Structure formats: structure tokens, C-alpha cells
Amino acid sequence: MSQRIDKSWVVLRSIENSEHDRCVDLFRRPDGSFGFDEFRRDVEDAGLWTPVAYYSAAAYASDEAALTAAVKTVAWLAMALNPAGKAT
């Protein structure tokens, strides 16, 4: 988790790419809103997850809405969710 993910936010799902060097966390805030953010993990950072974008400021009414926004925003996420390219 990054420094930007508030400790009061509950991470519902963490989705990694196939290289395991990028992830998107979907989370719920205490006020009932949802959000997401993207992170990277590099050798020079000792393998720690480092935020790469500031998507966590946006609030969504549901976890599904946050996931939909994340898929539209994070280029690699759709492939990570559906690596075989199968219709869902």
C-alpha cells in the first residue's frame, strides 16, 4: 500500500499485471465511497509499491463504478483482468 492510501480506507481488491510490477488497488472509504489508485514496484525501490498516479482523489458510488473507471484509465488493467481476451 502506498503512503497515499489512507489507513482508514479498506482495500477490497489488488490487481497486478502479468509482470507483477504494476497493480491497481480498489478501496472503500469510511464515508462509503470507493476509489482506486495505480502503483509500480521497482528494484530500486526495494520492491515496495510506489504510487504512479493520483487517481485516489476521485470518489465513486460503488466498487463496480470504481473498477469501470480504473479500466478506462489504466491502460494495462483490462488485459490483467482478462488475459486471454475472452468475452466476459
Rank of each mutant, 00 (worst) to 15 (best):
W9I: 00
S2K: 05
G47K: 05
G32V: 00
E16I: 06
M79E: 15
F36R: 02
D31W: 03
V71W: 02
C23L: 11
A53W: 06
V43S: 02
D42R: 14
I15W: 06
T88Q: 15
R40H: 12
V10D: 12
F34A: 01
V10R: 11
A58H: 14
W76F: 11
G85V: 09
L81E: 12
E38Q: 12
A84V: 12
A78Q: 10
F39V: 07
A69D: 13
A66W: 14
G32Y: 03
A75I: 12
A65G: 07
D6T: 04
A58S: 14
F27Q: 02
R4I: 12
P30T: 01
D25R: 12
E44N: 07
T88R: 15
S33M: 05
V74F: 05
D42Q: 10
R13G: 06
M1R: 04
Y55S: 01
Q3S: 09
T88F: 14
A57S: 09
R22K: 11
F34G: 00
A59G: 05
P83G: 08
M79T: 15
K72T: 08
G35S: 10
R28S: 09
C23E: 11
D42V: 08
S33K: 06
A87S: 13
I5E: 06
A65L: 13
E64T: 15
A87C: 04
T50K: 09
W49A: 08
D31V: 02
K86P: 00
D37V: 05
R40Y: 09
Y60W: 10
D45P: 00
N17Y: 08
E44Y: 08
K86E: 13
A59K: 12
E64R: 15
D45Q: 07
R28T: 01
I15M: 09
D63M: 10
D21Q: 06
E64F: 11
E64A: 15
L26C: 09
D37F: 05
R13T: 05
R4D: 10
R22C: 10
E44F: 11
R40T: 08
S14M: 07
S14N: 12
P51H: 13
I5M: 08
T73D: 06
T68R: 09
Y60N: 03
D31Q: 00
F27V: 06
S14W: 10
T73P: 02
R13S: 12
N82M: 14
S8W: 05
A66L: 09
D6W: 00
L67F: 07
D45S: 12
D25E: 14
W49Q: 01
E19A: 13
R29S: 04
I5Q: 13
L12M: 07
T73Q: 06
A69P: 01
V52A: 05
L26H: 04
R4N: 13
E19M: 13
L77K: 10
G32F: 00
I15V: 15
A84Q: 15
G35Y: 06
L12P: 01
K72P: 02
L48E: 11
E16M: 11
F36K: 04
W49C: 06
A57I: 09
V74Q: 03
R28P: 00
V24D: 06
F27R: 00
A78H: 12
V71K: 10
I15A: 04
A70F: 14
A61P: 01
F36N: 02
L48R: 11
L26V: 09
I15F: 09
T50G: 03
V71M: 03
